[in-house]
């Protein structure tokens, strides 16, 4: 699974958790906070993404990325670690 596919999974999960964002363009330079998601929604999206791409890791290892692109990079690296 390449990095852009993982990014697409993240964006799909964002739209599922917050249906109001269904029609809004989302770019990889944006953060979930900038999209108006609260901390509970952010963690749910990360949890759902991990599940969708078949990763089982402590959530604290997902801390740090500043935008969706960096989150996709991190997940991609973890998946190929």
């Amino acid at each position: 699974m390449d990095r852009d596919t993982i990014l697409a999974v993240i964006v799909g999960q964002i739209r599922e958790v917050v249906p109001e964002l269904a029609d809004r363009p989302i770019t990889e330079s944006e953060s979930m906070a900038e999209l108006g998601l609260d901390s509970i929604e952010r963690s749910e999206i990360i949890m759902n993404t991990l599940e969708a791409i078949g990763l089982d890791l402590p959530m604290v290892q997902m801390h740090g990325p500043k935008n969706l692109g960096e989150l996709a990079d991190l997940l991609h690296a973890k998946r190929h670690a």
């Binding site: 901390s39 509970i40 952010r42 963690s43 949890m47 402590p58 959530m59 604290v60 997902m62 801390h63």
Partner: peptide, 12 residues
């Protein structure tokens, strides 16, 4: 504090 990190640690 960091709301995201705190929530992640709580969930773990």
């Amino acid at each position: 504090g960091d709301a995201d990190l705190s929530l992640m640690a709580y969930l773990d």
